[in-house]
Design a protein around this nucleic acid. Structure first.
Lengths: 212, 212
DNA sequence: AGTTTGTTCAAACAATTGTTTGAATTAGGG
DNA sequence: CCCTAATTCAAACAATTGTTTGAACAAACT
């Protein structure tokens, strides 16, 4: 073998994560990916059975890494106060606004998916029993009235993610003309604080009507 | 002239609004549009100088209609209590989850843009002095501490829109498997109530730090 | 050494995209 | 009635997309 297969696979995955995070799945072409990975055109189809296969693999990796190295661990969650847990979570979600590290790229990928889920992603969440929202649901529920319906917690979690994601996706838009927000560490801290306060203040007032 | 030009233009615009609302600008092909409008392939380029020209026209119309027939009018706003105004606004934003009328389609188009602004849209907001966020900013500000920075109001408005938009865009996703939310009038009412309470409860706690 | 197996590569393929072309058609003004 | 200008139309174009092909290649096993 000219070059170990594993090596090429990793090159492709690394390039794919970078591009999928930057512009989402649909807007990333296989030619962009193979160019960035410095591998041959046909490599993606050989190793992953096509672009969608590659994406599925990437999603799997991202989900694993994110759950094992989440902002809040399942047990750690209980040791934290509800507010601390929420604050940590929001910070974690807003990470990709600022940083370009591995975790940020994964979060950003999911942010794109939350805007417009791809076919592959839907298949992915169908096979993965653990919802990618469950962390948010757990965190949110501790603020809700004890008799709040499960569905209310789900909707509140979706709202929470929506608020964070809009900033993650549109990072560069807000940096530009009509807004001119300087995106730096200070801004992210304050934004995280704003969202945290918003949610903490609001959640207890969510009533229990949402039909389950 | 075989058919009045105005007539064809309107056919195209109507079909385009429908498709842009359904899947967004990029995912709507000119062939889909001309098929739906029952006009010739070249008609879009003849009447609008290309797909982007058509979209710009559609955005202009949508923005006009939405501002003149907004959920809350600029003067009407003052006559309403802050809570009433917010509630009306949220309901208005959530409309396309349920209805398929003209206004809903416009709102849905902007919801797509809030997920990933197109080149055309950025040019559009650049030429339109009135921000498409200004209504949300006005509504949100009345809940903020009086000394809250302008930027805090902007961020809070973005959060508000983000919460509504995520449901508008993903309407059919939430209706399906992992969630199975029955999307009906009752659900939308309760969702609007949830978001309204969230925001009302949270906004007063937003502090004034956000650097301007 | 020779064969097999796994991997890379350049090229071509088929499908889809937005746009252009040039002739055909139609309505209105002289 | 004819001529001009506006509009429609079928066809082709150029560019981009994801995928397939078949030869070339390198390592491992017999």
């Amino acid at each position: 073998m000219t070059r170990p297969a594993e090596y090429t696979r990793n090159l492709i995955i690394k390039a794919a994560v970078s591009l999928f995070a930057e512009k989402g799945f649909e807007r990333s072409s296989v030619r962009d990916i193979v160019t960035k990975a410095r591998v041959n055109q046909a490599a993606i189809n050989y190793h992953f059975k096509g672009k969608e296969g590659l994406y599925f693999e990437v999603l799997k990796i991202a989900f694993e890494r994110l759950t094992e190295n989440a902002g809040v661990d399942a047990e750690e969650l209980k040791s934290l106060s509800p507010e601390q847990a929420l604050r940590r979570f929001v910070h974690h979600q807003l990470r990709p606004v600022l940083f370009q590290d591995e975790m940020s790229r994964y979060i950003r990928m999911f942010a794109w998916e939350s805007a417009h889920p791809s076919k592959v992603f839907r298949k992915f969440v169908a096979t993965n029993t653990t919802s990618y929202l469950s962390a948010a649901v757990d965190i949110v529920r501790r603020f809700l009235p004890p008799n709040a319906k499960e569905r209310a917690a789900l909707c509140a979690a979706i709202c929470l993610m929506g608020q964070c994601n809009v900033f993650v996706r549109n990072r560069d838009v807000f940096a530009q003309d009509p807004f001119r927000i300087a995106i730096n560490e200070g801004f992210v801290d304050e934004l995280a604080d704003l969202i945290t306060r918003l949610v903490i203040g609001g959640l207890p007032h969510v009533d229990t009507r949402l039909t389950s």
